[in-house]
Amino acid sequence: MIRAHALTKRFPAGKGETRTAVDAIDFVVEPGRVTGFLGPNGAGKSTTMRMILGLDAPTSGTVSVNGHRYADSPAPLREIGALLDAHAIHPGRSARDHLRWLAASNGIPTTRVGEVLDLVGLESVAGQRAGRFSLGMGQRLGIAAAMLGDPPVVVLDEPVNGLDPEGIRWVRTFARQLADEGRTVFISSHLMSEMALMADHLLVIGRGQILADCSMTEFMSDHATSYVRVKAPALGDAATLLGGRGLDVSRVDDEIRVVGLDAAAIGDTLFRHGLAVHELTLVRSSLEDAFMTLTADSVEYHAMTEGAAR
């Protein structure tokens, strides 16, 4: 379990000013499920993860792993396994040797190195210099390193970044398996579509603040709404009629949006009252849209293109 309380991190931003990367956030990452840590780039995900691992010191607030500060852990790699950056490997050292020094540092038996290499499917290239690894192989090596101590808590920062579809699927299955074994699994991503497939629970962060902390299903029903778009020559009449039936009707420009009844039933109703219909479309706002809307104010850099302005 990971527990953060009023966790805050400010960085100096020059001229005596500070930039708040993480702003007094509270959260709990529970065992037995995959918790997705979702937010746009620069939202504070990596900073939070570094604070969990004791790499960055919080400006204020606390974060604990399994009930105590990570740095106080008697056997850190047995406590938490982390993948922070797949590139953070000496390019001239082999995968096996990389895992060997890590194992040695926490007194983990060398036999465990072979086991985790097996686990991630890298045993055949374990003797190769890591500099030759593809990004996908690097991610697998990072995950192998995270699993060395067989830890009850696993933290993965953007593990699917740059992976091919097969690799993405592998990470997804692997995360699921870890959660099913009862471990705490905390995975960050800036891609909602990926989280939708992987996470049971969502922690959405934007500009250093928690925007949502709920289950995946809750998030879907709360944010991914759908409505039926109706276009008709007598738009006012149609709106009055449907509104009179207790449906949630809103008029936007030259259309009305109806929530609470499917397109066929709406069409039938209008037909029975002799109202002509020009368009009847079910509009589903995707999770991606929901995420965009939620974090719209908190992305650091907006692309000023037509497409993004829709």
Binding site: A75, R100, A104, S105, D150
Partner: peptide
């Protein structure tokens, strides 16, 4: 914990990162 490979690792048999362990790691 039971791993995919079926291997069981006992937590108790693992030493804390003593200076000797860190020295070994740095030597590797």
């Amino acid at each position: 914990t039971l791993m995919e490979s079926g291997a069981v690792v006992e937590r108790a048999d693992v030493a804390r990162p003593t200076f000797a362990a860190v020295l070994r790691a740095e030597w590797v």
